[in-house]
Structure formats: structure tokens, C-alpha cells
């Protein structure tokens, strides 16, 4: 799968993402500048973490209006794969590619700590190398990761099986104490209805090397590399 990483001004986890993609696929991803509009030849577009436009106004709001986002929308409409992590997830919701919004963390503080994610379904190209119900660890690093959507939208996400990952205890229990940012129904990541667009807050790309504390995030990228 040929991957491209979309660079918005203020993004800062593009190198982490490039390392994870290259480590698992053997190919360096293409770096795509936010003013580019021709994404031909790319199968997967990754919107990485960071602070696009300083998170000023609202996280992801200004990046969502970039020229490249029209191309990202077209790519998604054609059934192309899109992965948004952290700020990338925020951009995808601001751009309307995923429902809901990411509000300030419930405690009003930035949270940089490992969390545990329960895999809600494994029959997607992103989660194929995990088992359903499995738990993996991922660092989170965000001030605005509190997933919000109205009840109707949340019910629809559940009914259609579009919840990708939930914050859980290491034993896999979906409990309030595992949900440090206060997300609705412990939601950490969601899919678009075609299961080809994924947004999530934590950073699997920062846990792909035993040296950095583990390889819990590696299966996600291995699955993408194999697809």
C-alpha cells in the first residue's frame, strides 16, 4: 500500500508516523504538503498528530479548510484509505469525514500517558492484525481528546459497528477510570461507514519498537502494509 503523510503547518508527529510506516512496510511514505491537490497513486493518506495552525480557533478547524483536504475528501469518496491520528482525527471530524467532535479533556489538562485500547472489531484493514476484544497499549498526548457526539450519532455508531477502539483497563474492561479524557462511551477511535477511514486519538505510531517501550502499535501498521 502506497502511503502519503499530509503535512499541515504546525503538525509535529509526521516523523514518528513516517518511521512506523517505513518500519513495517519497508517503504518511506510520500510527504504531501497542505497546498498539494494531486494525490494520484497513493492508497493511504495519513493525517498525523500535532498542532496544525497552533490549534488556534479549534483543533483542526483551519487545516480542515486546506486545499489538500478537497483531495483527501475525493480520495475517501473513491474508497481510498485515510488514517487520522490525534490532530489528524480532529481534522477529519472538522472536515466532516467522521462524525462528532473532540472537546477539551474533561480535566482541562493536557494528558501525556499510556492508555489501553480495546479493539472493537478486527475485520477492517486497520485492525486485521489484532483480535477482536484484544487490548493494546498506546501513548496519548493531547489536550482535546474528549470525543463528543449527540446521542443519536453515538447510537448510530454503535449500531453500525463503527466504534474502532475504546479506552479500557489493561484487562479490557471499559470503565470510567480508563477514560481519562472523558470521551463519550469511552470512544478512542471511530470508522467511517465504509470502514476505510479511521480516526483515533492515541498514538500507535509511537509504540512500534521494543526500545521505546513496546510494539503494541505495530500490528496496525503491519496490517496496512499488507493490505
Amino acid at each position: 500500500m502506497k502511503a502519503g503523510i499530509v503535512l499541515f503547518p504546525g503538525i509535529n508527529r509526521e516523523r514518528d508516523m513516517a518511521i512506523a510506516l517505513e518500519r513495517t512496510s519497508g517503504h518511506a511514505p510520500r510527504m504531501v504538503w497542505h497546498t498539494e491537490t494531486d494525490l494520484a497513486g497513493l492508497d493511504l493518506l495519513v493525517l498525523p498528530g500535532g498542532f496544525s495552525y497552533g490549534d488556534y480557533l479549534r483543533c483542526g478547524a483551519m487545516a480542515a479548510q486546506s486545499p489538500v483536504m478537497r483531495a483527501v475528501r475525493d480520495h475517501a469518496a473513491r474508497g481510498g484509505y485515510v488514517l487520522g491520528v490525534c490532530n489528524g482525527f480532529q481534522i477529519l471530524t472538522e472536515a466532516g469525514l467522521l462524525p462528532g467532535a473532540l472537546l477539551r479533556n474533561a480535566g482541562l489538562r493536557f494528558i501525556s500517558a499510556d492508555c489501553h485500547l480495546r479493539v472493537e472489531r478486527a475485520d477492517t484493514v486497520f485492525a486485521a492484525r489484532y483480535q477482536r476484544g484484544a487490548v493494546f497499549r498506546a501513548p496519548m498526548a493531547h489536550g482535546d481528546g474528549n470525543y463528543f457526539a449527540d446521542e443519536e450519532t453515538l447510537d448510530r455508531l454503535e449500531d453500525e459497528g463503527l466504534v474502532a477502539f475504546r479506552y479500557a483497563t489493561p484487562a479490557g474492561k471499559v470503565l470510567p477510570e480508563a477514560n481519562r479524557n472523558g470521551s463519550a462511551r469511552n470512544i478512542a477511535g471511530i470508522y467511517a461507514p465504509n470502514l476505510r477511514v479511521l480516526g483515533l486519538m492515541p498514538h500507535p505510531e509511537d509504540l512500534v519498537d521494543p526500545l521505546m517501550g513496546g510494539e503494541d502499535g505495530k500490528p496496525l501498521f503491519e496490517a496496512l502494509a499488507a493490505a
Binding site: 479549534r58 478547524a61 483551519m62 479548510q65 472538522e94 462524525p99 462528532g100 467532535a101
Partner: peptide, 9 residues
């Protein structure tokens, strides 16, 4: 509508 507010929230 386009930028200053996110009408979802």
C-alpha cells in the same frame, strides 16, 4: 458556518 464555529458542537 464555514470556519469560525463548528456547528456539530
Amino acid at each position: 458556518r464555514k470556519l469560525l464555529a463548528n456547528t456539530v458542537i
